[in-house]
Design a protein around this nucleic acid. Structure first.
Length: 499
DNA sequence: GTAGGGTTAG
């Protein structure tokens, strides 16, 4: 930047070489006054333009606002200021007169001599990005030096975040990074942050991790916000496996990353979902070692992970630990523990826990009962299951679709076909449909017993409820219908009319 | 000081 050699207060936009010396009356005060007046005229012109007066083209070569700008400053013998250009550009973007922007930029580049402040480009690039004109944004970014402006990491970060917003623009990122080197822009930690954030947002955690590795290789410190972002994105996606996630986690930890409750929780949830209960347990232990007391939610997730992996000794150990640490198990925790007991065929113990829950003021819910019903039906304890269903009703626990399906499967599984049929009708009344395989099974069993008419009737009833039985039902009916094929004809037409 | 995250079922 060229400064007036004699005065620090000299206006930085003055041309260095003037043809004429300043008039003794033209002081800096006059100058500022002139600039202010010129701006006033420009602003006034904009207001008039807004109030639907057709812009008059003073000079056909230039857009109205540009010629107004030039004329008004000329009228006060001042050079146009960057502020004036910014004002014009902002006015044009606000009113979406995008076609007038290029000539203004051309003029700014070719005629003006001042060092254009970067914020003008930052503004325009952001605007182009917001109106989906990424290509214009990129061109302007590359063009910045031609405006006698040295772009900084601000412009770079901005253009990168715009490009990362869209998948199809991602491929331009390396080119921009390369070019920014030639433009002498020094990449900063913030640049990596921009890239990583953008990549996480578009769910490309794999790329985000690569960038993180580049950062580390370049000697940048590990930023906890970035790590946290990567971990949470990692846990939300499906492309990277839990093993890969654990590698990233391990590397971050090696580099000194101290996860917070949120990261631990995210990791535990992700690992449990991926069926890696023991790894989740490992994270829980890391949490404790890191001085963070896991809460009941973390424990509950890990408990369910141990049940899923069948590590029942760990289940008991952890449940004890919860109590030792003074945490209070809630219905979620008990449900997981009860499920664990049921999986070990220890339904009696599970039933005891349910009674115990009541004593502790923790009400069993529909999940608790469904878990128990599954276990009872599995071992054929249908009467106990029926009793439990009654208990649900008495305790005001509402039966849901799963409750009915579990019971129906229990009845069918035990060959209690006539009770199953009655139960199914009850279900249909409430618009609870059985699993298609269960229905097929019922029809198959009815047909096997020679109860073809009953099978037909049941099918008709279900079809009437807009429930479409599976192929096996039709097959069973057709194979067994013999001379009564006409019945199935009516069923078919019933099905067709309901669809 | 906060919330939210967690359970069953094929």
């Amino acid at each position: 930047m060229v400064r007036h050699p004699l005065s620090k207060t000299a206006n930085k936009y003055l041309r260095k070489f003037k043809k004429w010396p300043h008039s003794p009356y033209k002081t800096s005060w006059h100058h500022n006054f002139g600039e202010q007046q010129a701006m006033q005229i420009l602003k006034q012109a904009t207001i008039e333009m807004d109030s639907s007066q057709q812009p008059q083209r003073h000079n056909l070569q230039y857009p109205f606002l540009l010629s107004t700008l030039l004329d008004s400053f000329k009228g006060y013998s001042c050079d146009p200021t960057p502020k004036a250009y910014y004002f014009v550009i902002k006015t044009l973007t606000d009113s979406f007169q995008l076609h007038d922007i290029p000539p203004i930029l051309d003029h700014l580049e070719q005629v003006e001599k001042f060092e254009t402040p970067e914020f003008i480009f930052v503004y325009l690039i952001r605007f182009y990005g917001n109106v989906d004109r990424v290509q214009d944004a990129v061109h302007l970014f590359f063009r910045i030096p031609r405006f006698r402006c040295t772009p900084t990491v601000c412009s770079l970060n901005l253009i990168l975040s715009l490009l990362c917003r869209k998948k199809e623009c991602l491929k331009m990122v390396p080119q921009i990074l390369l070019k920014s080197q030639h433009m002498n822009i020094r990449i900063e930690e913030s640049t990596f942050q921009v890239l990583i954030k953008a990549l996480c947002r578009i769910k490309r955690v794999d790329y985000a991790i690569k960038i993180l590795n580049c950062m580390i290789e370049d000697g940048y410190g590990l930023d906890s916000t970035i790590c946290s972002l990567i971990i949470s994105s990692l846990c939300e996606q499906k492309d990277l496996t839990s093993v890969e996630a654990l590698v990233v986690w391990g590397e971050m930890r090696k580099l000194g990353f101290c996860p917070s409750v949120m990261e631990y929780t995210n990791m535990i949830r992700f690992l449990v979902k991926e069926g890696r209960g023991m790894d989740a347990l490992d994270i829980l232990n890391q949490m404790k070692e890191g001085g963070i007391k896991p809460d009941i939610v973390c424990y509950t997730m890990v408990l369910s992970g141990t049940v899923a992996e069948g590590k029942y000794e760990k289940l008991d150990e952890l449940f004890d630990e919860i109590l030792i640490f003074g945490l209070i198990p809630d219905v979620y925790t008990y449900n997981v523990y009860i499920n664990g007991l049921c999986k070990q065929n220890n339904v009696d113990e599970a039933l005891k826990i349910v009674a115990y829950m009541d004593e502790l003021g923790c009400k069993p819910n529909v999940v608790t009962y469904n878990t128990l019903l599954v276990a009872l039906c599995l071992v054929g304890e249908l009467s106990k299951a029926r009793g439990l269903m009654k208990e649900m009703g008495l305790k005001g626990v509402e039966l849901n679709l799963h409750t009915y399906r579990i019971m129906l499967d229990g009845l069918v599984g035990k060959g209690e076909i006539s009770e199953a049929c009655i139960f199914l009708e009850e279900m249909l009344e409430k618009c609870f449909y059985p699993r298609s395989s269960t229905f097929d099974n019922i029809i198959f069993q009815l047909c096997q017993k020679g109860l073809i008419n009953e099978a037909m009737e049941l099918t008709k009833k279900t079809v009437a409820k807009s429930f479409a039985p599976g192929a096996s039902t039709w097959e069973a009916l057709l194979l067994n219908s013999g001379s009564e094929l006409r019945y199935s004809d009516t069923i078919f037409s019933g099905l067709l009319s309901t669809n």
